[in-house]
């Protein structure tokens, strides 16, 4: 299994396509950082237009922590495409190249191959997120400095104390990793049903887009299925940036407003991952390789 995982990773990281994703992320983050560096004031003014009618906010809002939040908010919507690019290609790409049949004539069980391939997509996904963390968080912290994190929620404002922020990012990135692994699992599962990578990549994105629309639309008929859609839970990373207050409305440092929400979302996502990968194993064990 370990050897197999190494080989899969070797294959992933010898392909130019892999670095395309890292380059895309670098470019996207750089664009956001440069934009906010040049015109950040306008951006914050725009975001806070309504709020600033009655309050004046004093302090360095445009700090590294805030930038990273903006980056995550904008980027995590698009990262699934970059993940699908690799995960949805894991089986279909090999089927297309014809290497799948060579692979399967080697003395390994199909389940082991599937799991090694999935683990490789997970490692890729995690490296992608680490890269986002390095650029989005650490570079932003270095360039913009750090301060309290000022966030506008849809119906309230949260200011997270500087010393209370970093661990929340650690949690948020872990959660984002779980969401993205779910995307990887979906793409991976779909890659079993095609002999070219375009189909599963497009299918993965379509599923995500449709599910996101269902998660966003506030229509009663959809509301019943919302809790079961993984897209509803993918943005739960934001819960790390909301804390409890005491009776005097003072922030309780180190607390999370809805820890149960994070746990519930994590469970839903884990269930999706297990379902996708489990189904992939089941399908693949019996699948006739005709490519």
């Amino acid at each position: 299994m370990w050897t197999h995982l190494q080989i899969e990773l070797y294959k992933i990281f010898r392909r130019p396509r892999t670095y395309l994703a890292f380059a895309a992320i670098t470019a996207l983050i750089a664009v956001i950082q440069v934009g906010l560096f040049m015109d950040g004031k306008e951006y914050t003014e725009f975001v806070m237009a309504d709020f600033e009618g009655s309050f004046s906010v004093d302090g360095k809002i445009l700090n590294g922590y805030f930038i990273c939040y903006v980056i995550l908010q904008l980027l995590l919507v698009h990262v699934p495409l970059l993940i699908a690019l690799i995960a949805a290609d894991m089986i279909s790409g090999e089927a297309n190249m014809g290497t799948l049949r060579v692979l399967l004539t080697k003395p390994h069980s199909r389940s082991a191959i599937v799991l090694a391939k999935f683990m490789a997509s997970v490692v890729y996904t995690l490296l992608l997120l680490i890269w986002i963390a390095v650029l989005g968080l650490f570079v932003s912290m270095w360039v913009f400095g750090t301060d309290d994190l000022f966030l506008m929620k849809s119906s309230y404002v949260v200011i997270v104390k500087e010393s209370d922020v970093f661990w929340r990012y650690a949690g948020a990135f872990c959660f984002a990793a779980l969401s993205m692994v779910t995307v990887a699992a979906l793409g991976f599962f779909l890659s079993f049903f095609a002999e070219n990578s375009i189909g599963p990549i497009v299918a993965t994105m379509s599923v995500i887009i449709v599910a996101t629309i269902l998660s966003t639309m506030n229509i009663p008929i959809f509301n019943t299925i919302k809790p079961f859609l993984f897209t509803t839970h993918m943005i739960t990373w934001k819960e790390f940036f909301d804390f409890k207050v005491n009776d005097a409305n003072e922030a309780i440092i180190g607390s999370i407003q809805n820890p149960d929400k994070i746990i519930r979302s994590s469970l839903v996502l884990v269930a999706h991952i297990i379902a996708f990968v489990g189904a992939a194993v089941l399908v693949f064990r019996k699948k006739d390789i005709l490519s």
Binding site: S54, S56, G59
Partner: peptide, 13 residues
């Protein structure tokens, strides 16, 4: 002067 951090004050100070 804040000792670091962000403060929100009602408009007009």
């Amino acid at each position: 002067q804040r000792n670091g951090g962000i403060s929100v004050l009602p408009k007009g100070g």
